[in-house]
Nucleic acid binder design. Sequence first.
DNA 1: TGCGATAATATGAGTGCACATAATAAGCCA
DNA 2: TGGCTTATTATGTGCACTCATATTATCGCA
Lengths: 245, 245
Amino acid sequence: MPSDGGKGTGRQVGRQGMLGWQAIRDEALRRIHAREWAPGEMIPNEADLAQEFGCARTTVNRALRDLADAGFLDRRRKAGTRVALTPLRKATLEIPVISQEIEARGGTYGYALVSRRLGAAPIAVQNRLGLPAGARLLHVCALHLCDGVPYVYEDRWVNPVTVPGILQIDLGRINANAWLVQNVPYSRGELALSAAAADDAVASSLQCPASTAVFAMERITWMGEAPITLVTQYHAPGYRLTTSI
Amino acid sequence: MPSDGGKGTGRQVGRQGMLGWQAIRDEALRRIHAREWAPGEMIPNEADLAQEFGCARTTVNRALRDLADAGFLDRRRKAGTRVALTPLRKATLEIPVISQEIEARGGTYGYALVSRRLGAAPIAVQNRLGLPAGARLLHVCALHLCDGVPYVYEDRWVNPVTVPGILQIDLGRINANAWLVQNVPYSRGELALSAAAADDAVASSLQCPASTAVFAMERITWMGEAPITLVTQYHAPGYRLTTSI
DNA sequence: TGCGATAATATGAGTGCACATAATAAGCCA
DNA sequence: TGGCTTATTATGTGCACTCATATTATCGCA
């Protein structure tokens, strides 16, 4: 029996003392936390760990890869695996689609177009999108409501060169974000979270005093090298974006 | 040679027309974006896709698992794989260690203890940490500086029952966060991001006018079931937390 | 027809093996 | 000793095969 085909050596599978890859990951994480594997220090290679845990190297690989994805380990070919120097935590936060977020809270979603205008964008916007001076963009401001109460005020710039179809859409009825999500396969984007003082437009739309602290979420998306849209969403006071780490 | 041991059948490996799992993932993602696989709809099973792409089921599994992790697919045993109804985006943002964040920007890190007091915590804090009324906590306020300029004001409650060692530490010299990271292996935590108006303590520490909008990051960490700490970090005006999606 | 037992099925996971790739270590020659 | 080439090594990826697990579908029986 030359290659054994992955089983047959009398290993206990799925029962008894089998260690799943998750168990190995947990044990490795314990050692990291317990400083048995100190930050910046090399850990044993996959083959050795496989022997220690009595499993295949593939299984150890799966466990260590998971920890590397989570930011606990740095792995490089040949160089080996070492504990990350920075105990940086990676929090994966889910960017909600506003209508779904509202409906998930049991509210009724509402939408209102505030303004729509095609024209030259401010220099700052052009720079953020990497567009030449004088580029004409579609500027759309809209309001998302929860049970009729303002929830998010959205200030959006759309590049009609990249998505010409947007100009034909009745944005009074159709949410710009919904249309873009449906019609534009985008490749990458940037996200920035910040706190902002509500300016007049934001304050009046969200029905809060001017200068109120509001949570701002800015997104830029590209299709290949071509910028699609820059949107800043201002959440009503009290909004919290939460996740577990 | 009964099982072929994974090679030998004259397959082209790593060269020629081989499709890596990433290529399969990209193609699947393209089909999702292109609506060839519509939201909520089932996609072909792994075996069929493996045949289509001319690779092993393992490889397809890897690709689809990656997309499921990213939130594009919902997978259930036997039920099969379907395109996620919600095109929710998951952004992984890295929670920086402040000193490292500052040094990465080329600044000089500074730290100053503002206050330290052991006593009964407010009801709100007790509730957030799941502690009984009357629990005594260590309340530490501190300031992180970049080149001598206030960068982050930190308001922290530490449970001395969970981490008694903290009471012996000279927090005027040692950063509470640094000590905790070094000495307390924690298991899980919660993170909340929000915008807040600077109160008097925050405003005076960050040297900004009262009621200025500041970015607040709140973290709660547990060791098992025991709460360790609740910390809220108020960033100086203009702070942006960015990531790519 | 209704319902419980059973079969079928898709994904989840693991093993051994083989080769790919990247980066380091060693060797070699001028 | 400097610098180029080659060997070594740890991780990355892939394959065929096998069993596990969670559902769903089906069948048999009352």
